[in-house]
Deep mutational scan, measured.
Amino acid sequence: NARWTTEEQLLAVQAIRKYGRDFQAISDVIGNKSVVQVKNFFVNYRRRFNIDEVLQEWEAEHGK
């Protein structure tokens, strides 16, 4: 399903906090979204969920 429920959106943001840009890991956490759908989520929801800021926090924690 290409549509993202609110629950899936929140799950994705939590997974980004945990896995950074590991699209496969994020896809696995959500369970019903492909890697391509996760990559599209990054692009389409970047502003709404401040994904750049979430990634900066992840990179700071993981030394990337």
Rank of each mutant, 00 (worst) to 15 (best):
Phe42Asn: 04
Trp58Ser: 06
Tyr19Lys: 06
Ala15Glu: 01
Asn32Asp: 03
Lys39Val: 02
Phe49Ser: 05
Ala15Gly: 07
Val35Ala: 11
Ile51Gln: 08
Arg3Phe: 08
Arg48His: 14
Lys39Gln: 12
Thr6Asn: 12
Gln9Tyr: 02
Arg21Pro: 11
Phe41Gln: 02
Ala60Gly: 10
Arg21Phe: 10
Thr6Arg: 14
Gln14Asn: 15
Asn40Trp: 10
Lys18Arg: 12
Val36Ser: 14
Ala25Thr: 14
Ile30Cys: 07
Leu55Met: 09
Gln37Leu: 02
Ile51Arg: 02
Gln14Lys: 11
Ala12Arg: 00
Glu53Met: 12
Gln24Glu: 12
Lys33Pro: 01
Ile30Asn: 03
Val36Gly: 13
Gly31Cys: 08
Trp4Leu: 08
Ile16His: 02
Tyr19Glu: 03
Lys18Gly: 02
Lys33Met: 00
Val29Trp: 12
Tyr19Met: 07
Asn44Arg: 14
Val29Ser: 15
Tyr19Asn: 02
Ala25Gln: 08
Gly31Ala: 07
Ala12His: 09
Arg47Met: 11
Arg47Gly: 13
Ala60Lys: 13
Asn32Arg: 05
Gly31Trp: 02
Asp52Leu: 04
Ile30Leu: 08
Trp4Pro: 01
Leu55Gln: 06
His62Asp: 07
Val43Ala: 13
Gln56His: 11
Leu10Val: 10
Lys18Ala: 05
Leu55Ile: 06
Asn1His: 04
Arg46Glu: 13
Ile26Phe: 10
Lys64Glu: 15
Gln24Ala: 11
Val29Gln: 10
Lys64Leu: 11
Thr5His: 00
Asp22Lys: 07
Ser34Arg: 02
Ile51Ala: 09
Gln56Ser: 13
Ile51Val: 06
Gln56Val: 06
Trp4Lys: 03
Ala60Cys: 10
Arg48Gln: 15
Val38Phe: 01
His62Thr: 11
Lys64Phe: 09
Val54Cys: 08
Val54Tyr: 07
Arg17Val: 05
Gln9Phe: 05
Phe49Tyr: 15
Gln14Ser: 14
Asn44Pro: 00
Thr6Lys: 15
Val13Asn: 04
Gln56Asn: 09
Arg47Asp: 14
Phe41Gly: 02
Ala25Gly: 06
Phe49Thr: 08
Gln37Ser: 05
Val54Thr: 06
Glu7Lys: 10
Trp4Arg: 00
Val13Pro: 03
Asn1Phe: 15
Glu61Tyr: 01
Ser27Pro: 02
